[in-house]
Computed example of a mutant assay.
Amino acid sequence: MSETNQRYDVVVIGGGAAGLSGALALFRARRSVLVIDSGSPRNAPASHVHNYLGREGTPPSELLAAGRAEVLGYGAGIERGEVVTAEKLADGFRVVREDGSAVEARRLLVTTGLVDELPAVEGLAARWGREVLHCPYCHGWEVRDQAVGILAVSPMAVHQALLWRQWSDDVVLFRHEQPDFGDEEYEQLAARGIAVVDGEVAALEVGDDRLTGVRLAGGTVIPRRAVVVQPRFTARSAVLDGLGLVPTELVVGDHVVGSYIAADPSGATDVPGVWVAGNVANLMEQVVGAAAAGLKAASMINMDLVTDDTNRAVAARRTPFSAEAERQVTERVLGDRRHGLQETR
């Protein structure tokens, strides 16, 4: 393993909205910060970011580029790499990348996001983020008044159909492989004019690089311009395994919706010194919420470091006098002064 003597106040693992927001706040708090980013943001397939006040409609790549520029402008470091593990040290953590290189940090902020695991339906993954959608608040406006299909893959299917009905009066619910709905659910769907189609969905139909319909196993094609599906949201949390932080399953009814790393409202985990923010901790967080979570976690990390700095200073002050201690203080003070004189020359 290639080692390094580099040590930071905080290493941020993940360079999305949460990670960059946290890094910006921490560097503005005069902390030494390194962001390590794998370069695989969750929202890369999407064409635009929505519901982010002041940034509405910005392409995800542009938003991240602007965020990186702001962080780099303050002097924080951003490096590309895949972190494979984090290890606890006596005084902080060691973060190890896939190439074997390692850095140390007093605190960690993990903002690695999640992976959207889609059902195995032909054509679904290829259209993900384009006409295959999951969040009406993110994409509903863009497909308003169009023919929308809901692919039932969880007990939330009826809820999804009723929700998306807000954006279009042409909504079809494909029952696919889900159990039959109850009488009350059918009544709700009928009252809202939502048709239910029985039978397994085999594939999506595409023409001229545009979704045109949903093909059933029997060959029937139902014209649709957008398809809604509920992915399984799986936290990208393998880096935390070595610290004993394992994902918690989010269960709705008897169905596992996804997994996340449990934390308190500030993002603090059960491992002292480790915070999480964004989708790795909150599966439903949108971009603006992830950025806010990164900021909140950063403020708490800085306060934790302030407390640690103070405790260390108090302990040093109480240390009995010795010639060696005096020499170290003198060298530090004179060194700081020399550094200041050099900067002003």
Results as ranks from 00 to 15, higher is better:
Ala268Asp: 00
Leu163Pro: 00
Leu34Arg: 13
Asn43Ile: 05
Val256Leu: 05
Val172Pro: 00
Gln160Ala: 06
Leu189Thr: 12
Arg224Glu: 11
Leu204Asn: 01
Asp170Tyr: 00
Ser259Trp: 10
Gln160Thr: 06
Pro60Lys: 04
Leu53Ala: 15
Arg236Thr: 08
Gly207Cys: 04
Ile150His: 06
Glu98Leu: 15
Gly113Asn: 03
Leu151Pro: 11
Val11His: 10
Val143Tyr: 04
Ser299Met: 15
Ala157Met: 05
Glu187Met: 15
Arg30Leu: 14
Asn302Gly: 06
Ile301Val: 02
Tyr186Glu: 10
Val132Ala: 15
Leu341Ala: 08
Arg337Ile: 11
Gly258Gln: 07
Glu177Thr: 12
Ile301Cys: 00
Gly123Ile: 01
Pro247Tyr: 09
Ala268Tyr: 01
Gly340Thr: 07
Met303Asp: 15
Arg327Val: 04
Gly54Pro: 02
Gln166Val: 08
Val227Phe: 10
Glu343Met: 13
Asn51Val: 01
Arg165Thr: 04
Leu240Asp: 06
Val148Gly: 02
Ala86Cys: 13
Gly149Thr: 06
Ala263Ser: 14
Ala293Trp: 08
Arg107Trp: 04
Leu245Cys: 01
Thr212Trp: 02
Leu64Asn: 03
Asp183Tyr: 15
Val10Asp: 00
Glu285Trp: 04
Pro272His: 07
Val206Met: 10
Glu70Tyr: 02
Val239Tyr: 13
Thr212Pro: 10
Val287Asp: 03
Ile261Pro: 06
Thr319Val: 00
Tyr8His: 11
Gly15Thr: 06
Ala291Leu: 01
Ala290Arg: 01
Arg107His: 05
Glu187Ile: 12
Val197Thr: 07
Ser266Gln: 14
Gly77Tyr: 09
Asp180Phe: 09
Gln188Gly: 03
Thr330Ile: 08
Pro272Val: 05
Ala268Asn: 00
Ala23His: 09
Met1Tyr: 08
Lys88Thr: 12
Gly242Ala: 01
Asp99Ser: 10
Leu151Lys: 10
Gly81Asp: 11
Gly258Ala: 05
Gly253Glu: 05
Asp169Pro: 07
Glu79Pro: 02
Trp128Met: 12
Asp37Lys: 12
Gln166His: 15
Pro265Trp: 11
Arg28Ala: 12
Leu250Gly: 07
Ser21Leu: 02
Leu89Gly: 07
Ala66Met: 14
Val229Cys: 02
Glu56Thr: 12
Cys138Ile: 05
Thr248Gly: 09
Val35Thr: 14
Pro320Cys: 07
Ala126Trp: 13
His50Trp: 13
Gln286Ser: 14
Ala23Tyr: 04
Pro45His: 04
Gly77Lys: 11
Glu82Pro: 03
His139Gln: 13
Arg175His: 06
Leu163Thr: 11
Thr111Asp: 02
Gln6Leu: 05
Leu63Arg: 06
Glu70Met: 08
Asp309Leu: 08
Thr310Trp: 14
Val256Asn: 01
Phe181Gly: 03
Ala281Trp: 01
Val96Leu: 10
Asp116Leu: 09
Val257Asn: 06
Asp308Trp: 10
Glu56Ala: 09
Val201Glu: 01
Ser47Leu: 14
Val333Trp: 13
Arg55Asn: 03
Ala238Glu: 12
Thr344Cys: 09
Asp241Phe: 05
Val172Trp: 03
Glu200Met: 10
Leu211Gly: 05
